[in-house]
Computed example of a mutant assay.
Amino acid sequence: MSASKPSTPERWATTTHDWALAVDETHLAHVRADPRYAAGGVEHLVLEVLAYADEEAESQGRVGHVVVTRHDDGSVSVADDGRGTDTRFDDAGRPVRKPVMATKDVRFFDAAEPPALPDGLARRGMSTVAALSTWLEHTNRRRDGSWTQRYEHGVPATELVELPPSPGTGTTVRFLADPDLVRRTGLDGGALHGFEMLDVVLRDER
């Protein structure tokens, strides 16, 4: 469905996430309470983000370019050059971004045999990254607009904020993993380069 076609989230088909559910706090709390979702450390959370960029690149039949940056404050950002996270407009003209951070990915989270990421651990979805992060900032740039939003443990801490126009499209996810839940792991292993449709560059701001 086109982002410019008016409608309501309740009418939009669920493909990866339920558009009608903006936040699922029970799901987010479940992720935080179960140590299995944090087992792979920070590197696994980065792989969860990269998996979406890989899907985006494959859907476009192209190699996607991604920059993974380790920042001075301990956070990590993953910036891709895809189309930007799906964002649509409701009947009132308000932007609604697919709730990938605050609700579960219906394909993977409850699957008995989810696909494995390059580190060998199960893929469970982007919401695990948000739930296990002290804070996360999700910025997407699309042809019809750009927006950003901040989350704290997966719960939106701000509204969806419109950004000035910028060249190009893509999605940037920057997060600070909760040190009480997620162990610090290196990002230098081959796992980051284990996606067939991605060219990943690792940078260090520190």
Rank of each mutant, 00 (worst) to 15 (best):
E137P: 12
L45P: 03
A79K: 11
T172R: 08
M101Y: 04
D18Y: 03
Y52K: 15
L187T: 03
D24L: 01
M101I: 02
L202S: 05
L176T: 04
D119E: 02
P95T: 00
H17S: 06
A39I: 04
P179H: 08
M101N: 03
A92L: 12
H30K: 10
V31A: 02
V129R: 00
P179M: 00
L136E: 13
T128S: 09
V173H: 06
E205S: 14
G189H: 08
T158D: 03
G170R: 06
L28F: 10
G145L: 11
T14P: 14
E159T: 12
S146E: 08
L192N: 06
G120Y: 11
A191C: 00
K98W: 13
A116M: 07
W147N: 04
A112S: 11
V46S: 11
L132V: 04
S7M: 08
V67K: 13
T69Q: 15
M101P: 03
G61N: 12
S7L: 13
Y151Q: 01
P156R: 02
S127T: 04
P179S: 03
V200C: 07
V155L: 02
G41C: 05
G93N: 06
V68G: 04
R184S: 15
A116W: 05
R62F: 08
R150C: 14
P99A: 07
V66K: 12
G170Q: 07
L202R: 10
G125Q: 14
E137K: 10
T134D: 10
E58S: 07
P114W: 01
G190P: 12
V96G: 04
W12R: 12
K104S: 12
S2R: 14
H193A: 07
R36G: 10
R62Y: 11
V49G: 05
L192A: 01
Y37L: 03
D72K: 11
P156T: 02
N140A: 08
V200Q: 09
A38M: 03
E152L: 03
T158Y: 15
P114A: 00
G120T: 06
R183T: 11
E58D: 13
L117W: 09
V76C: 08
G154H: 00
Y52R: 14
A20K: 05
G189Q: 02
T16R: 15
H153C: 01
W12D: 09
G61V: 02
R142P: 08
L198D: 08
R142H: 01
A177H: 00
G74F: 10
R183P: 05
P35I: 01
Y151S: 02
R124A: 01
D178H: 09
R174Q: 09
A131E: 08
E58R: 13
R11N: 12
E43L: 10
D72P: 14
S59Y: 14
P35L: 00
V96S: 04
D91I: 13
H44L: 12
T185N: 02
L160D: 05
M1L: 13
P167I: 12
G120N: 08
T148F: 10
R107N: 07
H138M: 12
P164K: 07
D119R: 06
R184C: 07
R143F: 05
